[in-house]
Design a protein around this nucleic acid. Structure first.
Lengths: 211, 211
DNA sequence: GATAAATTCTATAAACCGATAGATGGCTTT
DNA sequence: AAAGCCATCTATCGGTTTATAGAATTTATC
């Protein structure tokens, strides 16, 4: 009976310890050339193994995309939901939402990028799933903005739906250039949050003083 | 000698009158499935012709992409430059820039979308070209914002580079959802411009009145 | 209506790519 | 060191896709 808790027995079908590394390589290449622009050979090259060896780690190229996308959205929704449900002001919550939405760029930019650009190529089932997920996130932003309007924190003539899409678009676009620009996430978050809440314009052009 | 100015003689190698239609079909399919996700067969299907017939209109699939991308950026830069060089206020110019940047979505959303999402797959030479073009446009937005800061119209602590990327990201993202959301360009432009210049926040939370 | 030009078709070559099957070697455990 | 599992390899099949060649058909011109 000797039950062993070492890495043995427990798994009937292989451990595949290198799996995370494989998925990371896939993310890198997918991010750079896109899903259909990538041959499985490209992933193998990056890893220094043979093309066919990849199939020990996933059953199909699409399955690999699915894994990458999953890691690309992991936690987003939950974090956003927590923030949205806190009882801070709408301004504060929106700023936190922006920060939370940008944070993953720091350590998994490729995964996020692949999710954003390649999710359309997921098999039907999981594409639907991430569709729902995506709409849920939009809704969270939209609701916080709507609450801000209702509370008198935000302008009354704001269209919460459009504003939410604007904010998300702005943040998501950062995935494309975050690495090239030399700016940290916290700096970026602050800049974006202030841009959205306060705008670019100066508050009170003070009554013109004579020099 | 009889020189004819009718549509004859002038072109030695064919007229290819259907070319615009062909390119439009390519744009449609590229926009939906991406460049590498599209087979030339798909374009042919949409047109009701045979796959091989396409090659009467362009020498390669990449060349078709090039044409689509070209139409996707046509005029952007020139329009933006004119606006940036006008002597309106920075606020006004930025609003006009946003409007001008969104306008093409009305009648060539597919072309714009393809340019934004698929330009990475252009052959090296033209990719470099649109790279320069793209940076030029960023620069225009950035400069107007910088001038607004210098003129005291915009907050002094704004990072013009990041703000420009934010605005462009916001506008470009609209290409993905413009059709689904039922909103006209003018409405969208106004909303976005106000969002960027004034922000979401209310100006003067008036000294708290009783209820 | 004859002729020429423009357009579309059929047929197919050649390369590429995803995926499977089964062999091989190395590491772990007993 | 024997046994078994884990990981990778070799070899290859079948399907897809881009692109070319040349015939056939339609359209325009005189």
């Amino acid at each position: 009976m000797t039950v062993v808790n070492f890495p043995s027995k427990s798994r009937p079908g292989g451990q595949r310890r290198r799996r995370p590394e494989i998925i990371e390589a896939a993310a890198r290449v997918f991010a750079e050339r896109g899903f259909h622009g990538t041959a499985t050979q490209d992933i193998a090259d990056l890893l220094g193994i043979r093309q066919a060896s990849l199939y020990y780690y996933f059953p199909s190229k699409e399955a690999a995309l699915e894994q990458v996308c999953l890691k690309g959205v992991e936690g987003f929704f939950e974090a956003a939901k927590l923030i949205a449900e806190s009882n801070a002001s709408a301004r504060e919550r929106l700023s936190l939402l922006i920060n939370s939405h940008l944070s993953p760029l720091a350590d998994r930019a490729d995964f996020v990028k692949v999710f954003l650009n390649e999710r359309q190529h997921l098999p039907t089932e999981s594409r639907r799933r991430v569709g729902r997920w995506s709409r849920g996130l939009e809704r969270i932003f939209e609701d916080v903005i709507r609450q801000g309007v209702a509370a008198g924190e935000f302008r009354a003539d704001v269209n919460p739906r459009l504003a939410a899409l604007a904010v998300l678009g702005m943040c998501n676009a950062a995935a494309s250039w975050y690495r090239k620009e030399n700016v940290g996430i916290s700096r970026l978050s602050v800049e974006f949050a202030r841009l959205i809440v306060e705008g670019l314009g100066k508050r009170d052009p003070p009554p013109r003083r004579h020099r």
